[in-house]
Amino acid sequence: MSGLILASASPRRAELLRQIGVSFRVMPAEIDETPQPAEPARDYVERLAREKALAVSRAAPDVLVLGSDTSVVLNGEILGKPASEAEAGDMLQRLSGNTHQVMTSVALAQADQCQALVVVTDVTFRELEAAEINAYVATGEPMDKAGGYGIQGLGGIFVRELRGSYSAVVGLPLRETAELLASAGDPVWHHWPCSKESQA
């Protein structure tokens, strides 16, 4: 799958793609990520995933381009990446003991054609102590993460329950990504290596 471009600089998305045997190159998209007035969170993440994929696709129209966006949503409010340690601590305190939604959209574009899906996962945090919130913020991990935490990192200890897609919470829903690639005529399993025993 050497013809695929990932329109994201996220190391987590890149690692997830490698996990399912996808070869790709990275070309981050430069778009305005400001939410539109009264824009629902689900519409917002899908719009950004589409815009990322299409922005890169215009520069490489003969190649499949994968775009994705993830938002943490609490009571309908989008919690973006914290701008400061104080904001990160506030986000974690708000998430403490509550259930929030992680909405991740994945979009696949070629030329001006684009397909997109949105995956919604319910994540419930246990009650967090102020000392552990402070210790977590001090590690720096929350600062580049939507909602101020990374489930695949130290923040994984905060999660009491998850209903939905773990990989979508990390940043890329693997099943849905594979479905989009298959619908474009390039199933990921076509590119999996065979063991020496199978080739014999």
Rank of each mutant, 00 (worst) to 15 (best):
G3Q: 11
A14I: 05
L17S: 03
V22H: 00
V22S: 00
M27Q: 13
A29P: 04
A29D: 02
E39N: 11
A55P: 10
S57T: 08
S57P: 10
S57F: 08
P61G: 10
G67F: 01
S68K: 00
S68H: 00
T70S: 07
T70A: 05
E85P: 15
E85R: 15
E87I: 14
A88S: 10
D90S: 15
R94K: 14
V102Q: 00
A107G: 05
A109C: 06
Q110K: 13
A111L: 14
A111Q: 15
C114W: 00
T121M: 03
F125G: 05
L128M: 10
E129I: 14
A130M: 12
E132L: 09
E132R: 10
E132F: 11
I133W: 02
E141C: 08
Y149I: 08
Y149V: 07
G150D: 03
Q152E: 07
Q152H: 05
G153C: 08
G153Q: 09
G153Y: 06
G156L: 09
V159T: 13
R160A: 09
L162N: 05
L162E: 04
R163F: 06
R163N: 13
G164A: 03
G164K: 02
V170W: 00
L172M: 08
T177P: 00
L180V: 01
A182T: 08
C194E: 14
C194Y: 14
Q199A: 12
